[in-house]
Simulated scan of single mutants.
Amino acid sequence: MALIGYMRVSKSDGSQTTDLQRDALIAAGVEPGHLYEDKASGKQEDRPHLDACLKALRPGDTLLVWKLDRLGRNLRHLVNIVHDLTAREVGLKVLTGQGAAIDTTSAQGKLVFGIFAALAEFERELISERTKAGLESARARGRKGGRPFKMTPAKVRLAMASMGQPETNVAALCKELGITRQTLYRHVSPTGELREDGRKLLMGG
């Protein structure tokens, strides 16, 4: 059960040295010999040392990164990496930044990452819906209005996570999801509990 650290610096974001990342990872318990480092631009997808790092991980190990953006190129790439790690029984801990609550070795950290995963799925669906809406609009010039986007499993999961937070603005959430308040409450309660329509949607019928 080893702690493995991954670092990345990029000219595009101004981070020319890994000193800060290295110090933080070593302070968190990673042995210097268990550190992997890539130097890549933000657009460059080839990260040989990340590939080597992921291959070196064994069941029971934990991968540590300084910040979430050091690991994934984008949210979808990050979600795919963590799903792969989880399937291999490898944990992930983020030391600082907006993703610092992510620790897939704990129940709370898994919940936080579940929200990230739902966001990534929602992003894919939203892009798909916008594309379809654009095509429909192009085919039907002059038609006013249109029905809101429908509820989807990813939106239900995101709504559950959001409605469970006291600071959530319901109107803003509905606007972001592209649904009406009535549709939201048919699927999820004000406290984030699943309702019958939401349960049916998540169960596939």
Rank of each mutant, 00 (worst) to 15 (best):
194 L>H: 12
191 T>D: 12
195 R>Q: 14
170 V>Q: 14
183 T>H: 04
149 F>I: 00
168 T>D: 07
190 P>D: 08
176 E>I: 03
169 N>K: 10
186 R>K: 10
173 L>V: 01
171 A>C: 04
153 P>Q: 13
154 A>M: 01
161 A>W: 02
151 M>F: 11
173 L>K: 03
157 R>S: 07
184 L>Q: 11
154 A>Y: 00
177 L>E: 00
166 P>F: 00
182 Q>N: 14
177 L>C: 01
160 M>C: 11
181 R>D: 10
151 M>W: 12
189 S>W: 05
162 S>I: 04
178 G>W: 00
194 L>N: 14
184 L>A: 08
153 P>A: 13
187 H>I: 02
195 R>P: 13
174 C>M: 03
187 H>V: 03
169 N>C: 06
176 E>Q: 14
156 V>F: 09
176 E>S: 11
188 V>A: 01
158 L>T: 05
156 V>I: 12
173 L>M: 06
155 K>E: 00
186 R>I: 11
192 G>I: 03
192 G>Q: 04
179 I>Q: 01
159 A>L: 03
159 A>T: 02
169 N>M: 02
178 G>Y: 00
154 A>E: 01
179 I>R: 01
167 E>F: 04
166 P>I: 01
156 V>M: 13
183 T>S: 13
175 K>M: 11
154 A>S: 05
177 L>S: 01
151 M>R: 14
172 A>V: 06
193 E>I: 10
171 A>N: 09
185 Y>A: 04
166 P>Q: 00
149 F>C: 00
163 M>W: 06
187 H>Q: 01
161 A>K: 01
166 P>T: 01
192 G>A: 03
167 E>W: 05
149 F>V: 00
165 Q>T: 08
178 G>L: 02
196 E>R: 14
186 R>T: 14
185 Y>S: 05
178 G>C: 06
184 L>F: 07
165 Q>V: 07
196 E>A: 15
153 P>G: 11
157 R>P: 03
173 L>Q: 06
186 R>Q: 15
160 M>V: 12
191 T>Y: 05
176 E>G: 08
170 V>K: 15
196 E>H: 13
175 K>T: 09
164 G>F: 09
154 A>K: 02
194 L>R: 13
152 T>F: 07
196 E>V: 15
185 Y>H: 08
170 V>M: 09
171 A>I: 11
193 E>S: 12
194 L>T: 11
161 A>C: 03
169 N>P: 05
182 Q>V: 15
196 E>I: 15
166 P>L: 00
193 E>D: 13
185 Y>I: 06
164 G>V: 08
165 Q>I: 08
167 E>A: 06
177 L>P: 01
165 Q>M: 10
158 L>N: 04
148 P>V: 00
163 M>K: 10
187 H>S: 04
187 H>T: 03
193 E>K: 15
151 M>A: 14
169 N>S: 08
169 N>I: 08
179 I>D: 02
161 A>Y: 05
160 M>L: 10
171 A>K: 09
182 Q>T: 15
192 G>P: 06
175 K>C: 07
158 L>I: 12
158 L>S: 07
162 S>G: 05
171 A>S: 13
187 H>D: 03
190 P>A: 13
165 Q>F: 04
191 T>E: 13
156 V>A: 09
169 N>E: 10
166 P>K: 00
153 P>T: 09
188 V>H: 02
183 T>K: 07
161 A>L: 05
164 G>D: 07
163 M>L: 13
162 S>H: 10
157 R>E: 10
158 L>C: 06
183 T>P: 08
196 E>C: 12
165 Q>C: 06
155 K>A: 03
163 M>G: 10
